[in-house]
Amino acid sequence: MFFLKMSLGAVQGLFQKPFRKNEILQQLYFVGNGSLLIIVFCVCFAAVVTILESSFHMKMVIQNDSMVPGFAALLILRELGVVVTALLLTSRVGAGFAAEVGSMQVTEQVDALKMLGIDPVQYLVSPRLIACILGSLFLVIVANLTCLFCAMLVSENMLGYSAQMFLTSMRRFVSFQDLIFAMIKGVVFGTVIPLVSCYFGFFCKPGADGVGKATTQSVVFSSITIIVLDFVLSYTFSFFY
């Protein structure tokens, strides 16, 4: 119940003054720029594994891997780029949010905000929510495209398909709406991460142990939510093809 109330409060807080522009920018920097390198690094390796494994399996089954660039690109755009990004964001940003809010809860800073007449949800959750939504959106785009370029590079150097052949095969399977759906998923996951993390932060038990548990729980719960929501969204989007 508190989760729903907090979520609604956070969304309302986005449209209520004062707009804490600097705080939002700081959080966006933390979410977006701070996670950029680690996400790009991880998705590049995921792309390499995806395309090589696809090629191996295709060669094993039909002795021909000419469709691999298209399949790999589709898999990257529909699942890999978004889910890996979201899970990495959960680990890095979600854990950070949970620990930060949890520490404030434990040290009664949240209560102090209430005493000052400041809504802690609007003060703490709303900037993180908008920052995480935008950051996740930017990161999903960058991750997907980096992943595609990486797959293209691997297919050129290891599978013998030129960039033009990769693009031709990709165009056979991929359409622009795949990127749009990936962006929608990014926005949804970007909404889930701060809400779940802040929720566990608000319900943090006293002591360092409590903060640790809240952080762990937030990461676990966010990851599960992301996986489940990914299934729901993928199933829903399948009706648009």
Binding site: L137, F138, I141, V142, N144, L145, L148, L167, M170, R171, V174, S175, F176, L179
Partner: peptide, 14 residues
């Protein structure tokens, strides 16, 4: 960078 990459993708898709 995100916007530019969207345009690059649109160009890649023709």
């Amino acid at each position: 960078l995100s916007l530019v990459l969207i345009l690059v993708f649109a160009s890649m898709m023709g």
